[in-house]
């Protein structure tokens, strides 16, 4: 037989042995467990059955401890740094590949005149996408390569923005170049989101995964 005191001791044990560091999180866990048992009734049999169905407090506390282990701050910082480095490198390579020109004066190769502006925009795009991913802003996190219509619309929208920007600054840009440049930016976009998704999965595998 069990009474409310036994249940309180049971919940105390789960909370205590979960070794959750933050008092606020411990109290939230206690409140959640109390709400779990709130509906089972007050009879000793009902309380005993509920505790039996719940499982071993030691095992549940151990699983909770693993779920809450570490703040993960350093890990998250490492993950974001890796994503920024990898995505930045991809952006740089793509912009280099599309901005290299044959230099007619020295018979060598040189970067196109818009390279600095392109790389600045690409860097901004990468940072924006990483922030959107972390803040879970859905429209920016979509895998564009899997949604052809949205991909085409994004290329068109970026091309339009470029044309308007150049028109506002009185610099020349043909529509063909605008589309080509925005296609490169969308390629960087898709690569960055793919890198974010793969890095998330890799970190989940290495450092402890979500149950799914």
């Amino acid at each position: 037989m069990a009474d409310r005191d036994d249940l309180r001791a049971f919940i105390d044990r789960v909370v205590r042995e979960s070794r959750i560091a933050k008092p606020r999180e411990r109290e939230a866990l206690r409140r959640e467990l109390e709400s779990h048992f709130a509906d089972v009734g007050d009879t000793p049999e009902a309380l005993r059955d509920a505790m039996t169905r719940f499982g071993s407090p030691v095992e549940v506390a151990g699983a909770l401890e693993r779920a809450h282990r570490g703040s993960g701050f350093v890990r998250q910082l490492l993950r974001i740094t890796l994503v920024l480095a990898a995505s930045g490198a991809v952006a740089l390579l793509l912009q280099l590949a599309t901005n290299l020109r044959r230099n007619v004066h020295s018979d060598g190769i040189a970067l196109g005149p818009g390279f600095a502006r392109s790389i600045a925009f690409s860097s901004l795009l990468v940072v924006l996408l990483v922030v959107a991913w972390e803040l879970d802003l859905e429209p920016l996190c979509a895998r564009l390569e899997r949604r052809p219509l949205r991909l085409i619309a994004t290329v068109a929208a970026l091309a339009l923005i470029m044309l308007l920007f150049h028109a506002a600054t009185n610099s020349l840009l043909s529509a063909r170049l605008a589309v080509a440049a925005s296609a490169v930016d969308v390629a960087i976009w898709t690569c960055t989101v793919a890198i974010l998704a793969r890095t998330d999965r890799a970190f989940a595998r290495v450092f402890g995964k979500p149950s799914a």
């Binding site: 409140r31 467990l33 509906d39 719940f54 499982g55 699983a63 909770l64 809450h68 799914a212």
Partner: peptide, 27 residues
């Protein structure tokens, strides 16, 4: 075992798959 749902939920919440909010239920 009913207790095992909570570590799973907490882990998924920390992984950013779930968000949680306290509110009153029907009862």
């Amino acid at each position: 075992k009913e207790g095992t749902i909570y570590p799973a939920l907490h882990q998924m919440e920390r992984a950013g798959l779930l968000k949680a909010a306290w509110r009153d239920s029907d009862n």
